[in-house]
């Protein structure tokens, strides 16, 4: 499987998905008008990865902003992870939020309550 390595833009996050390390990273801003276009390849990649995942998969999500269009696509990403977790593999989602950004913390907690995967909320202190 080819790793995914996408540079960030003002409207889309940087993405690193690597099967070798089992570490996936989504970082930056996710506010495209049409988020499906951006996220579909990521969801497809994870679907492939889910066929023979590593014993431990770590996903780091560090978003400064995301729009509601992205929020559904991010949920789709998490649902793929949930399937991997359900198949008795270790999965951890690290949800980063900036100090005082209660909205971003709450957004992470929303996902945590929907998706059955362990989340870790990590505050970034300047």
């Amino acid at each position: 499987m080819e790793p995914i390595n996408i540079e960030g833009t003002p409207k889309t996050p940087s993405v690193k998905f690597d099967k070798e390390s089992g570490v996936m990273e989504i970082k930056g801003r996710s506010i495209p008008e049409n988020s499906i276009e951006f996220y579909k390849p990521l969801v497809d990649w994870l679907e492939d990865y889910a066929k023979s995942p590593l014993k431990r998969t770590q996903v780091d999500v560090q978003l400064e902003y995301f729009n509601t269009s992205s929020s559904k696509c991010i949920l789709d990403v998490f649902k793929k992870l949930e399937a991997i977790h359900k198949a008795k593999n270790e999965v951890i989602i690290n949800w980063y939020y900036e100090e005082d950004d209660e909205d971003m913390l709450e957004a992470g907690e929303d996902y945590e309550s929907i998706i059955r995967v362990p989340f870790k909320m990590i505050e970034i202190v300047d």
Binding site: N34, I36, T68, S71, D110
Partner: peptide, 19 residues
């Protein structure tokens, strides 16, 4: 918010009814 997030599909244009 959580209900719509979890139960409604995105429109073809990418709108989610969540804005």
């Amino acid at each position: 918010y959580k209900f719509i997030l979890n139960h409604q599909k995105l429109s073809a244009k990418g709108g989610g009814g969540l804005g």
